[in-house]
């Protein structure tokens, strides 16, 4: 055996040299591709601009018909008829109450789940429970809506006779269940990234796991945990189908969670489903509500990002 460089008929070097002309073509590709990819990447920016622009322009039209101040302080929402009134407060109370109920479920259960998974659970149990949470997180919200409307509400009504067939309590609770996985996994991430040395140090001093959790782990992971709460709130504010199905469309300004209330998202669904004619105030109100919703969730997301960025700097 030996190198047969000279005996072989083919000479790769020459062939490559010959193909160099197509290399020029290659270098054109090479120059053009980054711009094409930049163009593709710009689509996400254009999407954001598109969202902001459409919401903003129609919202401005809305505020020409309904004064800004009236809209945000109005307690009456009667979008149809001759004496139509556009006050967003009924929708805001619906949104805020459902979010509060959801968060009241999701935060304690989610956080306790996170503590259990991160500090107490055996590896086996973790391997079993984490996929369960993933499955819960992957169930479409429409399914939760069905669950709230056909199961949770009737169940609650057997305890609370005053509960209306559509009400804000039941979808709030179910929304809370839906968000548990999110709070749990984000909080758990924050807690497991606390260095083990801190844990061991405290345990070695004779502290129980509970004490370690509350005195060491939670304080160290607090920003990550709070970020997960904020994201959960944002999710609840933006959730649509559960409340649309299970809370009905009552637009009265009320704080009674046993009654039907409409959220901002459910209002959007109702108005678009009704095929509001373009150009009417009703049609524009859709955008004003959506704009409000968008700003709410955006602010929440920015806060969460800010908190978790600070959190990352800590280690």
């Amino acid at each position: 055996m030996g190198l047969k460089n000279n005996k072989e008929k083919i000479n790769v070097r020459d062939m490559i040299e010959k193909n160099k002309n197509s290399f020029n073509l290659n270098s054109v590709t090479e120059k053009v591709i980054p711009y094409i990819l930049l163009g593709i990447a710009a689509v996400s920016i254009i999407t954001t601009i598109g969202i902001v622009f459409t919401l903003l322009s129609e919202t401005i039209s809305f505020f020409q018909a309904v004064p800004f101040w009236d809209f945000y302080t109005g307690t009456e929402l009667k979008p149809l008829g001759d004496d139509a009134k556009f006050g967003i407060l009924p929708l805001l109370t619906g949104t805020i109450l459902s979010t509060l109920i959801a968060v009241a479920v999701a935060i304690p259960i989610g956080l306790m789940t996170a503590i259990f998974l991160s500090e107490y659970a055996s590896e086996q149990l973790r391997k079993f429970l984490k996929p369960i949470l993933e499955i819960l997180a992957g169930i479409p919200t429409i399914v939760y809506g069905f669950f709230a409307f056909t199961f949770v509400t009737p169940l609650l009504r057997s305890f609370i006779p005053a509960l209306d067939p559509t009400n804000i309590l039941s979808p709030g609770l179910v929304m809370g269940i839906m968000i548990i996985p999110m709070v749990a996994s984000l909080s758990e991430d924050a807690m497991s990234s606390v260095p083990n040395s801190m844990r061991e140090g405290a345990l070695a001093l004779g502290a129980t796991k509970l004490e370690v959790t509350f005195k060491v782990i939670l304080p160290a992971a607090i920003s990550g945990i709070i970020a997960s709460f904020v994201l959960a709130i944002s999710r609840a504010i933006g959730e649509t189908m559960i409340v649309t199905i299970a809370s009905g469309s009552n637009k009265a300004f009320s704080f009674n969670i046993t009654e039907s209330m409409q959220t901002m998202t459910a209002y959007i669904v109702e108005v678009t489903g009704g095929e509001a004619a373009a150009g009417t105030t009703l049609y524009y109100s859709l955008y004003a509500v959506a704009m409000t919703l968008f700003v709410f969730t955006l602010v929440m997301n920015l806060i969460a990002q800010y908190i978790s960025r600070k959190f990352r700097e800590e280690y």
Partner: peptide
């Protein structure tokens, strides 16, 4: 450029789906 796009994407991920619906309604449908 990367920072802008990346931040934009994580914010886009947090936009409620119903708002995307409005975008679709306004831009694609109408």
């Amino acid at each position: 450029v990367r920072n802008i796009i990346q931040t934009n994407i994580s914010n886009l991920a947090g936009v409620p789906s119903v708002v995307f619906g409005i975008l679709g309604l306004t831009v694609f449908v109408r």
